[in-house]
Design a protein around this nucleic acid. Structure first.
Length: 201
DNA sequence: GCCAACGTTGGC
DNA sequence: GCCAACGTTGGC
């Protein structure tokens, strides 16, 4: 029975990471990236949330200012999340709202573990394909580090899409809800947050 | 509310 | 294995 390609790809994504499998060129590249990663520095990411659902202020109001990042239902996003390590830093991004943009920083305080909302038939996020044995979806816990002095709006980030933020995933793969961020991109956004927005006219 | 972009599903 | 149809995301 020939496997459907998309299905195979999805399963590949599902069973990744970690640990060795035959290893495509892509997988090797990824392994090399991990190997070369400087373990002394936390990795950097961006997490999207719709503030109507869960905002940076909701995170700030939580006990311990900590929350499980549940509900991710995209393989690529999940795989990125599964690579997160304790202490990795994440930009908190407000999406699907009046003023979308980066609003704060949070930190990984618990590495990937099964997302129980996928297993719960009562949950709107329930996934019938998820089982206790093969949970399929994972989440991390994040803790608020700080809110930024001001929101750095998407509109403003876009103004630098051919400059300091060239190649930023947010600007090319707009829909991915968990994304890697590079150190220069991170630093630049921090810099933006410290200053008043540049005059747009 | 509209719609473009993109991921997923399923027929063949 | 291709691709059309469908669903979701998210900016505007």
């Amino acid at each position: 029975m020939p496997r459907k390609r998309k299905e195979r790809e999805a399963e590949q994504l599902e069973s990744e990471p970690p640990e060795a499998k035959p290893a495509s060129a892509k997988a090797k590249r990824k392994a090399k990236e991990v190997e070369e990663r400087d373990d002394s520095a936390p990795a950097l990411y961006l997490l999207k949330s719709e503030p109507d659902e869960f905002s940076i202020d909701d995170l700030a109001a939580r006990p311990q200012q900590t929350e499980p990042w549940d509900g991710v239902r995209n393989f690529q996003a999940r795989n990125i999340m599964q690579r997160m390590k304790l202490g990795d830093q994440c930009l908190f991004y407000h999406s699907n709202t009046k003023e979308p943009g980066v609003v704060g920083i949070c930190e990984v305080v618990k590495e990937a573990y099964p997302d129980e909302t996928a297993l719960d038939p009562e949950s709107p996020k329930h996934d019938p394909k998820a089982t206790a044995d093969k949970p399929r979806w994972f989440m991390v816990d994040v803790k608020l580090v700080r809110k930024l002095k001001r929101i750095v709006p998407l509109k403003e980030l876009k103004q630098h899409s051919n400059g300091s933020l060239e190649g930023m995933v947010l600007l090319s793969k707009g829909r991915l809800s968990v994304q890697p961020v590079t150190q220069p991109q991170w630093d630049f956004i921090m810099e933006l947050a410290e200053h008043e927005p540049a005059d747009e006219s």
